[in-house]
């Protein structure tokens, strides 16, 4: 689907953000943030470099590929776009990608707008709601949440190809055994923005708290 009220740029942006984010075009339009995110990405990456990235991503998708077909810097931009959709914030990029893009902006995380935080998609991945918005009602926190939908179900609902939506990993991550390097670790302080939090350590590898 495409929102007829949206510009051609935004329609194109939403269409190819579906396989990146795992959310339908309907979901993405419903945030009412698509235009703001496209603007943000163009400003942060630079309009020309963003066009280059976008062309590469569209070629990968139309050619039956996925994120693994992107060059490292483009992979980082793709991650930033997903982070934007999921949290409403632009993240800190890998310094190598930041340098390669010759960005003029500070490489630091910021929230695009108060509304963007509220429209973050991450909350929907676990049947939640953004903290401080869209409250579900008195006592709802006592109800057992439903299980998350399986990947096949999501793929079918999205109408995306049966390709790997992962890089640097041999197989789909098993929810039974999530590797520590895909989880956040302890923040050294509250000043550390979410996109700069180190990855977790494997449980039990450090003799800590076990006396």
């Amino acid at each position: 689907m495409a929102d007829p009220a949206a510009t051609a740029d935004v329609q194109d942006f939403v269409k190819f953000c579906v396989p990146l984010t795992g959310f339908t075009a309907f979901d993405l339009y419903a945030t009412d943030m698509a235009g703001a995110y496209l603007d943000t990405a163009r400003r942060q990456v630079g309009p020309e470099r963003f066009d280059t990235f976008w062309t590469a991503w569209k070629q990968a998708v139309t050619g039956g590929g996925g994120p693994q077909d992107l060059a490292p810097t483009h992979r980082e931009v793709a991650r930033a776009l997903v982070y934007l959709w999921y949290t409403g914030a632009w993240p800190r990029l890998a310094p190598a990608a930041h340098a390669d893009l010759r960005r003029e902006q500070a490489n630091t995380e910021f929230v695009v707008a108060p509304e963007a935080y509220v429209e973050g998609l991450v909350w929907r991945t676990f049947h939640g709601h953004p903290s401080g918005a869209k409250p579900p009602g008195f006592g709802t926190w006592g109800v057992r949440p439903p299980a998350p939908p399986e990947v096949e179900e999501l793929r079918a609902g999205l109408g995306v190809r049966d390709v790997a939506y992962r890089t640097g990993l041999d197989a789909e991550v098993s929810p039974e055994d999530i590797p520590a390097h895909l989880l956040p670790g302890f923040r050294s302080g509250r000043h550390v923005p979410p996109s700069e939090v180190p990855v977790a350590t494997v449980p039990g590898t450090i003799e800590e708290g076990r006396v």
Binding site: G22, V82, V151, L169, L182
Partner: peptide, 8 residues
């Protein structure tokens, strides 16, 4: 390493 889309 990282995951995207439906896998994410």
């Amino acid at each position: 390493d990282g995951v995207f889309g439906p896998e994410l």
